[in-house]
Amino acid sequence: MEAHGRRLTLQIASIPLIVGWFLIGFSKDYTMLLIGRFVAGLSTGLTAATGQVLVGEITQPHLRGILCSLPFASYSFGILLVYVFGYFLQWRYVAILSAVLPILSLTLFFFLPESPIWLIRQERIEEAKQALTWLRDGDVSTAKKEASQIMERMDADQKKESMNNVWKTLLQPEVLKPFIIMNVFNLLQILSGTYLVVFYAVDILKQIKSLSFDHFLAAVWTAIARFIFTILAIILLGVVGRRSLALSSGIGTSITALFFASFEYLSCQQGEYFAAFSILLYVAINTVGFMILPGVLIGELFPAKIRGFAGGLTFMIFHFAMFVSAKIFPLIKQTIGVYGVFCMFGISSILASIFLYLMLPETKGKSLGDIEDYFQQKNILWVTRKKKDCSES
């Protein structure tokens, strides 16, 4: 995305996803199924950072939180869609239907502009102004003003970052501090169960002693809860600060996870509906903050000079950690049981809340330049910041 732009990268990313879904849908054996899954997985790696970086770069500060969280509404809706299709249809039909959306995405990107920030870094100034004019609904004066601010910002930094010094740039305080925040948050988010519950929803629900109804239907209900509360999170991001949302989600996730773990440990067989409600509440609270915030912050925390590289590296580490956790999770679940798993989720959520309270800056309403200036301060903890320079919203 640094060499060829955010838009073209996303278009290229649609191709393996289309091919992968068709390979899965028409697979004749297990090997072809794995090949299809691998090819589709390439697209996930290509789109994860690129989409968030693009949205973060093209939006105005007061809309950035809402628009950066919209991909997670799509993600939640996709989970719901596949769960519902999987409940009613044979899995091959679900795979083939899933190819429709990347085909639509590939087509629509021909009509959308490239990131103005990337264009200016490539010294394509007129194209950047045209893109900004389109993005700002034809307001030429606003587009010119914003383009000038971006150029001034880039003049203060090096205009080009070669691969020879990109690792040195990564060690600069304004890059290293957000890099640490993002990767620790991502790791604790995974351990809090955000994605493990998505991957193993049916398997987890089958092992809950107090649940006796259709586990596939129960998984559909968790997807419905996730989608509804993603929409709620998008609304909240317009009025609530990132820190408040993160801490509320972390504390709430911890309470609900530990409460359910205690309930399951005591083997309360008569509380079927209470157990179901606890699971849905856990999914809902976790979604509101922990699921959406890392993606939002990817587009906000990293400085423009290395946003693409740092964002891509962060998502690479995230996906590797998620891969490892997904592979060892069945063994962990078998060893410590469902109640032990939810204890792990709850403890991880507490640790994440403490970490975010100490480290995460408030970025709501701040320009990307303001956020970069904050990370250039000497402080490491948010609580020791210079409040006159970077106060909370």
Rank of each mutant, 00 (worst) to 15 (best):
F274V: 15
A275E: 12
A276D: 03
F277E: 02
S278F: 13
I279V: 15
I279H: 02
I279T: 12
Y282K: 01
Y282I: 04
N286F: 05
T287W: 01
T287M: 12
T287L: 05
T287V: 11
G289M: 03
F290H: 10
F290D: 11
F290M: 14
M291H: 12
M291I: 08
I292L: 15
I292E: 06
I292T: 15
L293A: 02
L293E: 01
P294T: 04
P294R: 00
P294I: 07
G295L: 11
G295A: 05
L297F: 12
L297I: 13
G299T: 07
G299Y: 09
G299H: 11
F302W: 01
P303K: 10
I306C: 04
R307K: 15
R307T: 02
R307E: 00
F309D: 00
A310Y: 06
A310N: 03
G311N: 00
G311V: 00
L313G: 00
T314Q: 06
F315T: 09
I317W: 06
F318S: 02
H319M: 11
F320W: 14
S325P: 04
S325T: 15
A326R: 07
A326D: 04
K327E: 13
K327L: 14
K327M: 13
F329R: 07
L331M: 13
T335W: 15
T335H: 14
T335A: 15
I336V: 15
I336R: 09
V338E: 09
G340C: 09
V341Y: 01
F342R: 03
F342S: 05
C343I: 15
M344L: 15
F345K: 07
F345I: 08
F345N: 09
F345G: 06
S349C: 06
I350N: 01
I350L: 12
L351H: 02
A352C: 14
A352H: 06
S353F: 14
S353A: 11
S353P: 00
S353W: 11
I354E: 04
L356E: 05
Y357K: 05
Y357S: 03
Y357D: 02
L358D: 04
M359Y: 10
